[in-house]
């Protein structure tokens, strides 16, 4: 297996697009090395992107935030403005694995690994995050939900590299939250999860909302009906019940070693309800 750690993006793209055999990008490695170890993949080439310029930075831009693809999730929590603007995205990213994993794993890697149970993805989808892609065809932006096409499958082409994840600026009175269910208190993969992002209008009525669910379908599901259930409300009980029901209706999960269809469906609704309440409280407390 050949290992390369290019220091320019052009070089990285050339390596990936010119590769013969199986080539993989290495960011944090917390999925890639596990898959190599389990003999699920046997790469001929691994391209480590962590030495690319700017890849390890979180930048404040005019549009919002740009999080480099090599930034470990642990660093997101240390970035105070990001934490203030997008607490739900940060908490989702920081739920991935242990402190040890946090020191390596990245949200770009979490996205590109394309697991239906990826923790950061529902929060990113709820947050209207975009992936910055550089590749042989140049540079483009794509909504994160357009990247994942199925379990382990993405829309990225040969030589494409997600170089950063972008989050928009926050309107006033906005909040987001992410909750997942795991059997233990740490270290597990989400059995099901929910990300909620919302903005309040006058009298703290929900003006706009996005609700996304994880681990209940082949890809993360955006549930517009669940969002509509709470828009125009102050999260009164019946609104929350409608939200939960809409979420349950949007679930098409599987039975596996981590949970049953019934469990995932029911608990996804519970989590969406609880996450909405947290997001709402965060928005309400903001100016």
């Amino acid at each position: 297996m050949r290992y390369e750690a290019p220091t320019s993006t052009r070089e990285a793209i050339a390596l990936m697009s010119g590769a013969k055999g199986d080539a993989y990008l290495l960011a944090g490695g917390t999925d890639l090395l596990v898959r190599m170890r389990g003999e699920f993949i046997d790469p001929d080439l691994v391209v480590d992107i962590k030495r690319l310029p700017g890849i390890q930075e979180i930048r404040k831009t005019a549009r919002g935030f740009s999080i480099g693809a090599g930034v470990p999730c642990a660093a997101l929590g240390r970035h105070k403005p990001l934490l203030r603007a997008w607490p739900g995205v940060v908490e989702a990213a920081q739920l991935i694995g242990s402190d040890q994993i946090q020191g390596r794993c990245t949200i770009a890697g979490n996205l590109c690994n394309a697991s239906p149970a990826a923790d950061s993805v529902p929060a990113l989808v709820a947050a209207t995050a975009k992936a910055v892609i550089v590749g042989p065809g140049g540079r483009r932006r794509l909504a994160v939900e357009k990247i994942i096409t199925g379990p382990g499958a993405t829309s990225l082409g040969k030589g494409d590299i997600v170089s950063a994840i972008e989050l928009p600026n926050r309107p006033p009175k906005s909040g987001d939250a992410y909750l997942r269910f795991i059997p233990r208190t740490e270290m597990d993969i989400a059995v099901c999860s929910a990300g909620v992002s919302l903005t309040l209008g006058p009298r703290n009525v929900v003006k706009q909302a996005r609700v996304a669910l994880g681990a209940v379908a082949p890809t993360v599901v955006l549930v517009p009906k669940a969002a509509r259930a709470i828009v125009g409300t102050r999260l009164e009980d019946d609104a929350l019940q409608r939200l939960a029901a809409a979420c349950e209706a949007a679930c098409s999960p599987i039975d596996d070693k981590r949970g049953t269809v019934e469990f995932r469906t029911e608990v996804a609704g519970v989590l969406a309800r609880r996450a909405a309440v947290i997001a709402y409280e965060r928005a309400r407390k903001k100016r």
Binding site: G29, V34, Q100, R104
Partner: peptide, 17 residues
């Protein structure tokens, strides 16, 4: 690794450069 706690089983030896 550079002051960050990691699992050394999830770091390639080559990355230590």
């Amino acid at each position: 690794l550079d002051g960050q706690l990691v699992c050394s089983c999830l770091v390639l030896g080559a990355e230590a450069e």
